[in-house]
């Protein structure tokens, strides 16, 4: 009940947010919220460190942009097409890489993303160094004009809420339980009769598709797609967001993305300082707050709750799991 109320309050706040904050910044944050959630699904819940996640983000941005530029297809379908493209790309790359573990997996995914970066750089349809300019916002469902940022904000918000729900659903599904088990102890899952590689492959495809939706959406927000979106610093940034927010926590990537984008925006005027401060923050988080923002907060909450409880009673009320 309280959860539903909190969600209602959050949605209401999000609905009035563009009247108080710059809507493009808010939309950027939301794109990265989806992107970071997709990344957390991999690293946080499957234990897979993909160091080339930008290929799904940037690749989908081009696909969505290209569709909008060259066809009258409505904007929501173009974004979904970006997701489908990245999901298929994820399937292909996943089939080739999923057997690798740990740092090997990270390096191979990085190699693939560098390769794709090179293709995007050389192709003519992407606009190479100049990027893909003037991507139109075709009417929503072919009916509603969304060229104004304030109007478009609500489309982006809807996409974000649905994506976060999908992410939540996957994590808290029967499959999510198996996925977490694979992360914790892959040989054991195999010895129970599952095929851990197929389980991880599915997570990889879902994650890639989500990253694609995020990238496609970003292309429609800025109305251009650039090589930057497919470059390795973006892959690094999403790792930073996820770690900062709290790996393997449901809300972690949401806060991580918000904090990083807001910081980038705030520090943009200071040039290099933005990068340096990011580095310092990452260092602080890794050294002092291993569980990330959300992880530390929930640990603190548990700690306080435990202290409040008088000890003998805590021991007596044994079924602590009946939350």
């Amino acid at each position: 009940m309280i959860r539903l109320l909190l969600i209602a309050v959050a949605v209401a706040l999000l609905a009035i947010a563009p009247f108080h904050f710059y809507s493009v910044t808010l939309m950027t944050i939301m794109c990265f919220v989806i992107f970071a959630c997709s990344f957390n699904l991999l690293l946080g819940y499957s234990g897979l460190l993909c160091f080339g996640h930008a290929m799904f983000f940037g690749g989908a941005a081009y696909v969505t942009g290209y569709i909008l530029k060259s066809t009258p297809i409505s904007i929501e379908l173009a974004i979904l097409a970006g997701g489908v493209f990245s999901g298929l790309l994820g399937l292909l790359i996943g089939l080739l890489t999923i057997r690798r573990q740990g740092i090997q997996f990270a390096m191979i995914t990085l190699a693939f993303s560098q390769f794709l970066y090179f293709i995007f750089l050389q192709s003519s349809f992407t606009g190479g160094e100049d990027g893909m300019q003037a991507i139109p916002r075709n009417a929503l469902f072919g009916l509603f004009d969304v060229s104004q940022n304030l109007t478009y904000y609500y489309v982006v918000l809807a996409f974000t809420l649905v994506s976060v729900f999908v992410y939540y659903r996957v994590v808290h599904s029967p499959y999510g339980e198996i996925l977490k088990a694979v992360r914790d102890n892959q040989p054991r899952v195999e010895s129970l009769g599952f095929d851990p590689e197929r389980i991880k492959l599915l997570a990889f495809v879902i994650s890639a598709a989500m990253a694609g939706v995020a990238g496609g959406m970003k292309a429609t927000v800025y109305q251009f797609a650039t090589l930057t979106d497919a470059s390795w610093p973006i892959s690094a940034e999403v790792i930073l967001m996820t770690l900062l927010g709290g790996l393997g926590t449901l809300l972690g990537p949401i806060f991580g993305a918000g904090i990083i984008i807001w910081l980038n925006d705030y520090l943009a005027g200071f040039g290099e300082w933005a990068l340096i401060s990011q580095g310092v923050i990452l260092l602080i988080v890794i050294v002092f707050f291993r569980r990330g923002f959300v992880g530390e907060l929930s640990a603190l909450a548990t700690y306080i709750a435990n202290r409040r409880k008088p000890d003998p009673k805590a021991a007596a009320s044994n079924p602590a799991g009946a939350q």
Binding site: S173, P174, Y175, I178, F194
Partner: peptide, 14 residues
Amino acid sequence: QASYGTGYHFWRSL
């Protein structure tokens, strides 16, 4: 879940 067959059901709730 191994014999229950829900191992890939990512769209369903717990």
